[in-house]
Nucleic acid binder design. Structure first.
Lengths: 331, 331
DNA sequence: GTGAAAGCGCTAACAT
DNA sequence: ATGTTAGCGCTTTCAC
């Protein structure tokens, strides 16, 4: 690999001139031409190690994600990369497999790589996560419990759940089952509260047994749905508030022999492909995943460029995509 | 950020000793202790720029993928990262949005980052891709058309399609529709040939109109399926050979009012979640995505460590996951 | 086992 | 506008 001196020699100028030219400083026309030619001839690429060692900048942004088996997370990468690439930054993606210890190691790794900023969906308590960051511009997505001074981007969970609940209520449903993620997470809390707010606004008092929480697994959605269906007075509609829970619920509903949109109403969450593939197509709450990623990237760029935007929480609205899985309540 | 000299000073040794100790060379017990203490006290992390500048190694492996909106690709990252992380390597993921020019830029980027190896699902013609690599250890996944001297890992597409076809044939189907990806790609060619081999082995002569190719889009699967169903003598079974085509086919089949596994038989590809979510559950060919990733990572590690394994093409078998979408042919 | 010192390739301060 | 040069933090001879 050629270095800057060889380019300089071939072009008949000093390394300083080459460096400046390559970094956008004006040089004499003939020198510019000579440098261009030399670069091409030698197939020269600046050494990022040397440059980074000198500048302590990397033009690189880190992304830490808990998993990759989920279109929610992967869409974030896609859109974040889109925005950052356009701004000249490259993206360094790390997956921590929902393991706090590995998350820490990945963060170390990224810091050693001198990332200029970080976008993360933390799997550790967000407050712990932020504590280890001293000064690094960061935007958090999705899980904001207990964060003081950090920019976050997330779906507007409250109104997402409110809207879904209201559409069921306006179809006459009063006995609605709610499938939530783990109680310990922030998102389920928000979705529950939006749901309950819609019920309260319509004077519907929900039995506690209709509201179920469990881990974000298909099996858990399956189990909770079976439990709901086995109640003496089962709900006439079910709202699953997450991707896996939706799939699990569908499994249980298929088994039950009930026909969606006729015998029972159902609203899912995310699962766009599944929603389109099943019969009848599902009504689902869809998160604007690409917008979330773009907003996170834009915010990070502002942060990197020195803007101060403390504690800014950006909410991205969701969309209620209508399928045919909701029908009027029978009674 | 503290540097190695500060650690050395605090520990009362030279920078050379610190460096050696941190890189696994034996030092005196008391020095080791002192260095450990100093590292902890200063919260020292080696500067990867300086280290890389010196060693010209990065302990980093690049991954280039065309997209991220597909569990096939994301599972690759997951499993590759798993293996490499265990070997002390970190993974640098790039997405090129199926854009050849961007693919080239990402490759440049990775080379400047001095990656020690590369795993890629190239979206350019693989032969062009490999040409720009001079010497960098590389493992290609998935698209191997026209590659001479490069390790590849991919599903055993021929027997995957053969098996699916045979299971339809043994259920009595003779009129089978086949949905393929674009003719220009390598994978559809393999899947077609496996399918046709099974037909030939069972003396089934298939009309050309039953075999359709189109881009990897849901809409294309939808359209091709509608075309099949509109034939004067429509097929009694359909085999979709890719994720998107499967979803599209399901859309069209739902619309048609035909019940899967009763009025028409269907086998899909990948789509594990969808397969479980629809009613009846789908019979699908499932790629062992994690094994593909692991095999690629293992192969790359061998390559990096200097083993020569020219032109090695690793085939990972697929699995036919039985659902209830296949029934005996009526006639 | 240890330390002194050179040098990886680049940028930026300074002099011209 | 251009060139000279110091030095970023590390590893690695080489001498002890």
């Amino acid at each position: 690999m050629p270095n800057i001196s060889e380019v300089a020699r071939l072009a008949g100028v000093s390394t300083a001139t080459v460096s400046k030219y390559l970094n956008g400083v004006k040089v004499r026309e003939d020198n510019a031409k000579a440098i261009d030619a030399a670069v091409r001839e030698l197939n020269y690429h600046p050494n990022d190690f040397a440059r980074g060692l000198r500048t302590n900048k990397s033009m690189t942004v880190g992304v830490i994600l808990p998993e990759l088996d989920n279109l929610f997370f992967t869409s974030i990468i896609s859109s974040v990369d889109e925005v950052l690439d356009a701004a000249g930054y490259s993206t360094l993606v790390c997956i921590c497999h929902s393991d706090v210890e590995r998350e820490g190691r990945k963060l170390d790794f990224l810091r050693r790589k001198k990332i200029d900023g970080l976008i993360a969906v933390p799997c550790s308590a967000a407050s712990d996560f932020v504590r280890n960051l001293d000064g690094l511009p960061v935007v958090l997505i999705y899980r904001m419990s207990g964060i003081g001074s950090c920019c976050c981007v997330m779906s507007d969970n409250v109104s997402a759940a409110y809207g879904a609940a209201e559409s069921l209520i306006s179809a006459g449903h009063k006995k609605i089952g709610l499938l939530l993620g783990p109680d310990s997470n922030y998102t389920p809390i928000e979705r529950r509260s939006g749901f309950l707010a819609a019920c309260a606004a319509n004077n519907i008092e929900l039995r506690g047994e209709y509201i179920r929480s469990g881990p974000y697994y298909i099996e858990s959605g399956y189990r909770m749905t079976r439990e709901l269906l086995a109640l003496p007075e089962p709900p006439t509609a079910i709202f699953a508030t997450n991707n896996e829970l939706t799939i699990g619920a569908l499994n249980a509903l298929s088994e039950s022999g009930l026909t969606l949109g006729r015998d029972i109403s159902f609203i899912g969450f995310d699962c766009e492909l599944v929603a389109r593939a099943v019969n009848p197509p599902l009504t689902v709450v869809v998160q604007r995943v690409y917008e979330i990623g773009r907003a996170a990237a834009d915010t990070l760029l502002s942060l990197i460029s020195g803007e101060i935007m403390q504690n800014k929480a950006i909410r991205i609205p969701t969309e209620l995509r209508l399928g045919k899985s909701v029908c009027r309540a029978k009674n």
